[in-house]
Design a protein around this nucleic acid. Structure first.
Lengths: 135, 135
DNA sequence: CCGTATCCTCCAGGATACTG
DNA sequence: CAGTATCCTGGAGGATACGG
């Protein structure tokens, strides 16, 4: 599909979008989701190694994020009944396709980083006191 | 741009992504951002009309979202010094390009809605008590 | 090694009331 | 009409401790 000229509103009512799509995005945007997809995109990893690559994650959040991604079928969890126990996380094909979409969005963000930073600065300069906020 | 085979980690350190990109996405994902971009994508609107198309928004949030989008140069605010005052919001070219990206993401979400719903259901059925959550 | 349980903090965002 | 100002709540997510 040539999604280039999609109008959001042809995709459903605002409410449908604000429900379903935010629901989907929330999963990937639950602070660690995008990162997990990104890291897994170059190959399966075990729990601890994943944790090592996401140094600021609490185990709680890592597990939670992983469970959600697994529940949605974006990530596949495989347990190898060895000693000590070994668990591997991998992207599913659909998970990979989402990662590809996200990569485009990240690409957009990076392409326009300068524009946005510059615009923010001039906006802030024009309004005393209204500053702070962005990075 | 062939962003199709971008690896997230070639785009910067995880931290950079987790800082800047989430910063950008937050703006569009601050609950009403995507919707605002979507609605404005078919033409400029005035404040009240925008509010009417986003029935569940508080004025506070509408204003806040609009200000952020404006600050980043994604939305252009034009004041017509008439009586009563008239303010028009429109997408900037960069805002439009972000909307196009988001539209692709929405397209993805809609394409895979069935897959995800199904997967969730079977996941939940396999785990008593772990249910609820999704739509 | 691979998680789960519990407690606590912080702030996005809603309700409501007011103004130029 | 086009916002501001203020108060308040829910829940995402961090810290920490424990279990299989």
């Amino acid at each position: 599909m040539s999604a280039a000229n999609i109008d959001v509103r042809t995709l459903g009512t605002p409410d449908q979008i604000n429900t379903w799509m935010r629901d989907v995005l929330a999963r990937v945007e639950d602070k660690w989701g995008v990162l997990i997809l990104g890291i897994l995109s170059s190959g399966p990893l075990r729990y601890a190694e994943l944790g090592r690559q996401l140094p600021d994650t609490s185990q709680r959040m890592l597990t939670l994020s992983l469970r959600r991604l697994e529940r949605d079928g974006l990530v596949v969890r495989t347990v190898f009944p060895s000693t000590p126990p070994q668990v591997e996380y991998a992207l599913s094909p659909v998970g990979l396709s989402l990662h590809l979409q996200m990569a485009q969005l990240i690409g957009w963000a990076l392409e326009h980083e300068d524009y946005i930073r510059t615009h923010r600065r001039s906006y802030d300069e024009a309004r005393p006191g209204g500053g702070s906020g962005g990075g």
